[in-house]
Structure formats: structure tokens, C-alpha cells
């Protein structure tokens, strides 16, 4: 595994630190270089890494740390704490429109997992006692509507479709009307995948936002994403002012550095993570656990605890 050696290296670095009674600036520098490499290996964005390392270093060189009896542990704590903060600290939850009817709109690049996640969300909402309905607004991808219908069936949730229409705005508006009329209280709008630089399709999302007023716009980000995660997240957030992020495909061996980058450039919380193709594979996101995963820090945390 690509990351094992790095995680080993890091732990080695921290162990070296730990064995030193006193830390010099040079020791901290070397440790920061390793942290930087670890984050880059985990696909955290280059700029985010640079800033992060500079911040951490400044904190580490503070008097309390350097003069502490256990400076190494302090450094590890700072890295872990800062990383957790960067991931969103306490964590956040999906929010519902106090008016009683919530529209959730999904958005994201092609193939990130929007349609599948619609099903997972419907499932989650039902378990939370809500009455969700799905709405098929991907009028482009071949069989996208069929796909959502199969998904809807699997999670026992009705799907609003209009196969004759090529106008997602019109479809979403009609779906909202019907959902309210029929006594549903959440409408989940599936949209086609698109590039954030695709002017026409981004305008289409803005238009849906304008006309249907989603209470939550959720950006679906693939955990396997590399350096591009910031461009996509920034692009979608600038156009749509997203409310939260869902990280998919976390069931593999991805380090998920993209999560950190997306969260950092948008300032929006990561609400859930997708951990499989089935509709119950959706978990609340825990910034602290993610921080450990990114740095491969499981063992490092026990190092701190043993301090």
C-alpha cells in the first residue's frame, strides 16, 4: 500500500521527536516536511497544505510548546487538532426548512455518486421520520431517469419524472408542487453531472436554485479526487453557495484528502460520507476520524495518549 510507508515515516518522525527532550526549530522543520509529504500523498491540495504547514509551524514554535516538558507530544497534538479543525471541528448536520417543506438539491461533477446518494438520503430521511420524494432532473445522461426510478423503488420512495420534458427547471418546479400537494415534506432533486467550467449547465443549476429555492444544496464529491477537488468545489460554491458536502466512495482505500480541500475552500461542512453502493451505506461525517485517516494516524493517536 502506497500510504503505509508514509504513515510509518511519519510515525518514525514523531517518535524521533518524542525521544528528544528539547526541540530545536530544525527538528520542527523536519517534522513539518514529513507532515507536508503525508498530506500531499493523501491528495490534500497543494496550497491548502502549504498554508496548513505554515500555521502549524507557527504554533509549534510558540514558547509554551518549545518549553514544555513534552514538546513532541505537543507538536503531534497541534497537528491533529489543526487537522480536525480543518475538517470541520465538531461536525454538522443536514438542516430542514423550518417552514416544514425542505428541498434538497444535489450537484457535482460527473460520476461522483449523486443519483446513488439520492437513494441513500431518501433512506436516511425515512429513518428520521421524514416523508421524502425524489425528482429526476438529469435529462442528459442515457437512462438517468430509469436509474433514479430503480433507486426510488429500492428505497420505497416515489420518484417524480417527466420523460417528455428537457427542462430541469420546469420538472423541479412541478415536482415541488406535487410533493407539497401529496403531503411529502422533503424533495430530493437529482441533477445531471457537470463540469464547474460548463457555463450553460452551471446556469441551469442557478436557474433551478432560483425557481425552486432548495433549502440545502449539497455538493457530492468523490473521495478519490486529487488536486482538482478545490477547483470543482470552489466553482460550484461560487455559483450556487452550497450548504454542505457529501463525500462518496469512502469504502475503498482513499485517504480522502479531497474532503479537507473541499471543506477548506468552501468553508462548508461535510455532512455525510458514502461508504458503499447500497442505499444504507451513508454515514455521518466525523472530522476527527477523518483527520486520523488522512495522516494514517491511528497509531500516532495512541502515542499521544501514552504521553
Amino acid at each position: 500500500m502506497a500510504f503505509e510507508s508514509l504513515s510509518d515515516k511519519l510515525q518514525g518522525t514523531f517518535k524521533v521527536l518524542k525521544n528528544k527532550g528539547v526541540l530545536t526549530e530544525k527538528d520542527v522543520d523536519e517534522a513539518m516536511r514529513q507532515v507536508k509529504l503525508a498530506l500531499l500523498e493523501a491528495d490534500v491540495n497543494f496550497k491548502v497544505v502549504k498554508e496548513f504547514v505554515a500555521d502549524v509551524k507557527e504554533k509549534c514554535l510558540g514558547e509554551e510548546v518549545m518549553k514544555s516538558l513534552t514538546p513532541a507530544q505537543q507538536v503531534i497534538k497541534i497537528v491533529n487538532g489543526e487537522l480536525t479543525d480543518l475538517m470541520g471541528g465538531e461536525g454538522a448536520k443536514l438542516e430542514y426548512d423550518p417552514a416544514g417543506f425542505t428541498v434538497i438539491m444535489m450537484a457535482g461533477l460527473q460520476g461522483t455518486g449523486k443519483t446513488t446518494t439520492c437513494g441513500k438520503l431518501a433512506n436516511f430521511l425515512k429513518e428520521s421520520g421524514k416523508k421524502p420524494m425524489l425528482c429526476a432532473c438529469d435529462v442528459y445522461r442515457p437512462a438517468a431517469i430509469d436509474q433514479l426510478e430503480v433507486v426510488g423503488k429500492a428505497v420505497n420512495t416515489p420518484v417524480y419524472t417527466d420523460r417528455k420534458s428537457k427542462d430541469p427547471v420546469k420538472i423541479a418546479k412541478a415536482a415541488k408542487k406535487e410533493a407539497e400537494l401529496k403531503g411529502f415534506n422533503v424533495l430530493i432533486v437529482d441533477t445531471a453531472g457537470r463540469l464547474q467550467i460548463d457555463e450553460e449547465l452551471m446556469a441551469e443549476l442557478e436557474n433551478i436554485k432560483d425557481k425552486v429555492k432548495p433549502y440545502q444544496i449539497l455538493l457530492v464529491v468523490d473521495a478519490l479526487t486529487g488536486q482538482d477537488a478545490v477547483n470543482a468545489a470552489k466553482g460550484f460554491n461560487e455559483r450556487l453557495a452550497i450548504d454542505g458536502i457529501i463525500m462518496t466512495k469512502m469504502d475503498g482505500d482513499a485517504r480522502g484528502g479531497a474532503a479537507l480541500s473541499a471543506r477548506k475552500v468552501t468553508g462548508k461542512p461535510i455532512l455525510f460520507m458514502g461508504t458503499g453502493e447500497k442505499y444504507d451505506a451513508l454515514e455521518a461525517f466525523h472530522p476527527d476520524r477523518m483527520a486520523s485517516r488522512i495522516l494514517g494516524m491511528g497509531d500516532m493517536l495512541s502515542l499521544i495518549e501514552s504521553a
Binding site: M1, A2, E41, A42, D43, L109, G111, D222, L224, T225, G226, Q227, D228, A229, A232, G252, D253, A254, R255, G257, A258
Partner: peptide
Amino acid sequence: LDATNGKNAIS
């Protein structure tokens, strides 16, 4: 391979 993928593509 999805061009947006990062290091995971190696694995």
C-alpha cells in the same frame, strides 16, 4: 481512469 482522481489511481 478518471482524470480527477489523485494518488488512489496508483492503487
